[in-house]
Computed example of a mutant assay.
Amino acid sequence: MSSRRDFIQKLSFGFGLTAISDLTFRPDNPPAFRPADKQLRVALMGLGGYANIVAKAMQDCKMATIAGIVSGTPSKIETWKQKYNIPDKNIYNYETVGELKNNPDIDLVYITTPNSLHHKHVLQIAAAGKNVLCEKPVADNAKQAREMIAACKKANVRFYIGYRLHFEPHTKEVIRMREAGEFGKIMHVNNYMGFKIGDPTQWRLKKALAGGGALMDVGVYSLNGARYATGEEPVWVTAQETKTDPVKFAEVDETILFQLGFPSGAIANCGCTYNFNNTERLYINGDKGFAELSPAFGYGPIKGRTHLGPLNQPVVMHQTLQMDGIADIILNNKPDPHVTGEEGLKDMIVIDAIYESIRKGGAKIFINK
């Protein structure tokens, strides 16, 4: 795999062949949507590689449908318009996106633009009065995440983060087992995610667009996985960075290892990298049992086992489950499986602390919420 694009395409293609927080709105004054036909009408903002994966997955959705697009690349618009039968009135660019407020045919905008644009775009969509689903990481830092949450609350719209694994059956089963006490007291978590990044000119290696490197892109999987593996929020972190190619990774981090401490005494050893492949694992060790997912974080198929035997949950394209799940939450007020903007903020608080630890030579940083 020579680039993250190859990584994404390979995983999604192979998969396709086989196949804390309260909500950020006031329950007595929910945002407007059309529940009659039980279809959440979604506009995709940013028509890059991941948006194509989401769009493909949404063809199998029962409760969510592609209703519009927002793109800064005119050459992409005609293809998307024809492929997904999108009317002209539901097509926007980054200059006209504010006009969404006058369009009752779009309920939610899914933002899949580069990381450092998330803050600006979430504020724009909130100002337009539309519900927001934003890819992770939610922002460049916790300060921005708090501003995004505040903007959505002020606009009375719902704000979610693209934590697709919270809808994925193997991951959900591991969380269920942990919540049921089947692993006993969680003692240790070991999580890794990474790949060898290719094209040195891509936006993921430019801090102005990516916000950071491996930690922001794939480290969030290791971090979020440690949080749902323990069901706790870390209270301290230590971290170390390794950089073997200071030219290619001049602006962003290449490989980061970090350790998390939790109130119960559980410890997590986590890592993320842009320098090597075959790095995708979640391992939970409790005093009564264990769980292992490997692959654990990619687009699938997720595979796993526990002390009770193999996990044989259904293999379904993650984004299909995610989009139907978000629709079910909004249209039917179903419980949120920890995918709100506040969940994104919790990850950003820890990411800020990880970077602080690295700046301070690996010092233990106590995390302030």
Rank of each mutant, 00 (worst) to 15 (best):
R4M: 15
Q9R: 03
K10D: 01
L11Y: 03
G14C: 00
L17M: 12
S21T: 06
L23R: 08
P27N: 08
P27F: 10
P35C: 06
K38A: 12
Q39F: 05
L40K: 05
G46R: 08
L47H: 02
Y50C: 02
A51F: 06
N52S: 13
A55I: 07
K56L: 06
M58W: 11
Q59H: 06
Q59T: 12
C61R: 04
M63V: 00
A67H: 07
G68W: 14
I69M: 14
G72V: 00
T73K: 09
T73I: 07
K76F: 04
I77Y: 04
W80K: 08
Q82W: 00
Q82S: 15
I86M: 13
I91L: 09
E99V: 03
L100Y: 05
K101T: 06
P104H: 05
D105G: 11
V109E: 08
Y110H: 15
Y110T: 10
Y110R: 06
T113V: 12
L117R: 03
H118M: 05
K120C: 08
I125H: 01
A127Q: 11
N131Q: 13
C134P: 01
E135G: 14
K136L: 07
N141G: 04
N141E: 09
A145T: 03
A155K: 03
V157I: 07
V157H: 12
G162I: 01
Y163T: 00
Y163R: 11
Y163L: 15
F167N: 10
K172G: 09
I175G: 02
R176K: 14
E179N: 04
E182P: 00
I186G: 04
I186S: 05
N191I: 07
G194P: 13
G198I: 04
D199M: 08
Q202F: 14
R204T: 14
A210I: 05
G211P: 12
G212A: 15
G213T: 09
A214G: 10
L215F: 12
S222K: 01
N224W: 10
E233R: 05
W236T: 07
T238C: 09
T242W: 12
T242Q: 12
K243M: 12
D245C: 10
V247G: 05
F249N: 12
A250N: 12
V252F: 11
F258M: 09
Q259L: 01
Q259A: 07
L260G: 08
F262P: 06
G265L: 14
N269R: 15
G271T: 06
G271R: 15
T279H: 14
L282G: 10
Y283I: 03
I284M: 14
F290V: 01
S294N: 11
A296F: 01
A296D: 01
G300H: 03
I302D: 03
T306G: 05
T306Y: 02
H307M: 02
V315T: 02
M317W: 10
H318Y: 05
H318C: 11
L321E: 02
Q322E: 15
D324G: 11
D328A: 15
I330T: 08
N332I: 00
K334S: 14
P335T: 10
D336S: 11
P337G: 06
H338V: 00
L345G: 00
K346N: 06
K346F: 04
D347V: 04
D352W: 12
A353T: 01
A353E: 03
I358Y: 02
I365F: 01
I365H: 01
